[in-house]
């Protein structure tokens, strides 16, 4: 997979959906590609997170700790991504991600992301707009839910 394909995948991430293509290309170029073998953990529930991953290939299990042990709640495939909130604010990982098949990811660190945002403020505006849309969307759903109740 080369750089241009990676950029296409990044465009699928909502917070990046409106960011200029050239910027995303730079983000992809400066980000590291990390492959995980079967059974390797990408991140662990409860650990502090500061990295976002975009899955370029393979599948991963989403595991949640419960009193009765770890259970798999979902599966992620190519085009999936996780941890996008972690690069905006410090939140602990809400789940454990484990490679089910050999997994290829693009690893975007908070540092690299911030550096680009600092350099290109319009990127921040696009991301803010996207977040505001999401907030509005959630509010509407909340209103609909309260009205229904």
């Amino acid at each position: 997979m080369n750089l241009n394909e990676e950029v296409e995948l990044l465009k699928g991430v909502p917070i990046f959906s409106k960011v200029e293509q050239a910027r995303l290309k730079l983000l992809a170029f400066t980000s590291e590609r990390v492959n995980f073998g079967v059974g390797q953990e990408v991140c662990h529930q409860g650990d502090p997170g500061d990295t976002m991953y975009v899955i370029l290939g393979g599948t991963a299990d989403v595991l949640i700790d419960t009193p009765s042990g770890q259970i798999s709640v979902a599966e992620m495939k190519r085009n999936s991504f996780f941890g996008e909130i972690a690069i905006l604010c410090d939140v602990p990982r809400t789940a454990t991600i484990k490679a089910k098949e050999p997994l290829a990811t693009l690893k975007i660190t908070k540092d690299m992301f911030y550096r680009l945002v600092a350099e290109f403020p319009e990127m921040a505006i696009e991301i803010m707009r996207e977040l505001a849309h999401r907030l509005e969307d959630t509010n509407q759903k909340l209103r609909a839910a309260t009205r229904a109740a």
């Binding site: 050239a22 730079l26 400066t30 550096r115 290109f120």
Partner: peptide
């Protein structure tokens, strides 16, 4: 061509230049 595309508009003292 790729470098010009990627790094144009970046301020010259950005550490990304040196690194990447």
């Amino acid at each position: 061509e790729t470098m010009v595309e990627l790094f144009s508009g970046l301020s010259p003292d950005n550490p990304l230049f040196e690194q990447y």
